[in-house]
C-alpha cells in the first residue's frame, strides 16, 4: 500500500500542472479498448492543481465520442477536447455531466456548439447553483478560471440503454450524493463511470448528500456487472473498492453523527471526533470531514431535539 501511495505521489508530481501557461497537462489513459480516463489530483481544489481534482473520461465508439464530465474550467474543457482530438478524429456525439457539481460541468463552454446532456434535476441544479460556484471557483483557483462562465447542460438525458457506434451504454438515474446522480456503464468493456456516488482513498463530499439514499444507490451500483470503477475522485480501481470504501465511510459517518446528536454534542465537539483507522489515510482530511459535519449534523441534531415544545 505504501509503495502504491509512493508511486501515486511520484506520478502526481510528474503531472504537476504548469501555472505559467495554465496547462493542465491532461493525459488520457486507456482503461479498455476505446475507454479513457483523464485523472485529476486526489486533493482539494487548490491553485497548485488548477482545481483539477476530478476524473473525467471519454468513450470512443465507431461513430464518435461520448465525453463524461467536462472539468472545473473553460480552460479544462478546451484542453480536454484537444486531448480527445489527439486520440481520435471522430466527432463528439454526446457530452454528459454526471451531476450538478462545478467540476462536472464547468468545461461545458468548450462544447457550447454541441450542448451538454444531464438529468433534468441536474440541469436545474446547475442553473440554480452556477453563480455561487463561479464565485467560489474563481476565489479558489484564480486565473485557472479565466473566462469561465457557468454553462449548464442544455439537453436532458434519461436513464436507459444507449446504442452508439456499436457500443451498448447503460445510463442509471440514482441519487444520494446529489438529488440526481447519473452513472454510466459501458457494457462492452465493463467500465463503470460511477460519478459522485463512489469515492476512492478520499473523503466523500456531501453538500447535497442524503446518506440513507446514497447507501441504497451504492447497493445498486455493487450489483452491476462492472470490471473497472472510475470514481469521480480518487484512483481508478479494477475492483469494487471505491464502492465498498464509500459505503463503509458513509455508514460510519451516519452512526457517528446519530450517536453525537443523541449525546447532546455541539458541532465543534463532533468535529473533534477521532477518525478511525480505515479512513485516516483518506485524502482531504480533516477538511472534508469538517464539511461533512457542517452539512449533515444539523439534521441529526434537529431530530434528537424532538418536536417543537408547547408554549409555556
Amino acid at each position: 500500500m505504501r509503495t502504491f501511495l509512493f508511486g501515486l505521489g511520484a506520478w502526481l508530481c510528474g503531472l504537476a500542472v504548469q501555472a505559467a501557461d495554465f496547462d493542465y497537462a491532461l493525459k488520457p489513459r486507456a482503461l479498455a479498448a476505446g475507454v479513457y480516463v483523464i485523472e485529476g489530483a486526489v486533493a482539494d481544489f487548490e491553485p497548485a492543481n488548477g482545481c483539477n481534482i476530478i476524473n473525467t473520461g471519454f468513450i470512443v465508439t465507431e461513430a464518435g465520442v461520448v465525453v463524461i464530465n467536462t472539468g472545473p474550467s473553460k480552460r479544462y474543457g478546451e484542453q480536454q477536447r484537444a486531448a480527445i482530438r489527439r486520440i481520435t478524429p471522430l466527432p463528439i456525439l454526446r457530452v454528459l455531466n454526471l451531476n450538478l457539481h462545478p467540476d462536472y460541468f464547468f468545461g461545458n463552454q468548450a462544447y457550447a456548439d454541441l450542448g451538454a446532456y444531464a438529468l433534468p434535476g441536474t440541469q436545474r441544479g446547475q442553473k440554480a447553483e452556477g453563480a455561487a460556484y463561479e464565485n467560489n471557483m474563481y476565489r479558489l483557483c484564480g486565473d485557472w478560471m479565466r473566462d469561465t462562465v457557468a454553462t449548464p447542460a442544455t439537453r436532458a438525458v434519461e436513464a436507459g440503454h444507449l446504442q452508439l457506434g456499436g457500443r451498448k451504454l447503460t445510463l442509471l438515474h440514482l441519487s444520494g450524493h446529489t438529488p440526481d446522480d447519473l452513472v454510466l456503464l459501458d457494457e462492452t468493456s465493463g467500465v463503470l463511470f460511477a460519478g459522485g456516488l463512489a469515492f476512492h482513498a478520499r473523503v466523500p463530499t456531501t453538500p447535497h448528500a442524503d446518506l440513507p439514499v446514497w447507501l441504497q444507490s451504492l447497493d445498486q451500483l455493487a450489483a452491476l456487472p462492472f470490471r473497472i470503477v472510475v470514481p469521480s475522485h480518487g484512483p481508478v480501481a479494477a475492483s469494487e473498492a471505491p464502492i465498498t470504501q464509500t459505503r463503509s465511510y458513509l455508514r460510519w459517518l451516519d452512526a457517528t453523527l446519530r450517536d453525537a446528536a443523541t449525546r447532546g454534542l455541539d458541532i465543534n465537539e463532533v468535529l473533534a471526533t477521532p477518525i478511525p483507522e480505515p479512513y485516516r489515510s483518506f485524502a482531504v482530511l480533516p477538511t472534508e470531514f469538517m464539511r461533512n459535519v457542517t452539512h449533515l449534523y444539523p439534521r441529526y441534531e434537529q431530530k434528537a431535539l424532538g418536536d417543537p415544545l408547547s408554549r409555556d
Binding site: G264, E301, Q302, P308
Partner: peptide, 24 residues
C-alpha cells in the same frame, strides 16, 4: 409559520445537565 417555536432537550453531561435548544 415557525416564528418563536422552540425545540429543546436536557442531556446528561457528566454529573450535571446540558441544555440544547433551537429557537425558530
Amino acid at each position: 409559520r415557525t416564528l418563536g417555536q422552540v425545540q429543546g432537550r436536557m442531556f446528561d453531561h457528566g454529573d450535571a445537565s446540558r441544555l440544547r435548544v433551537r429557537i425558530m
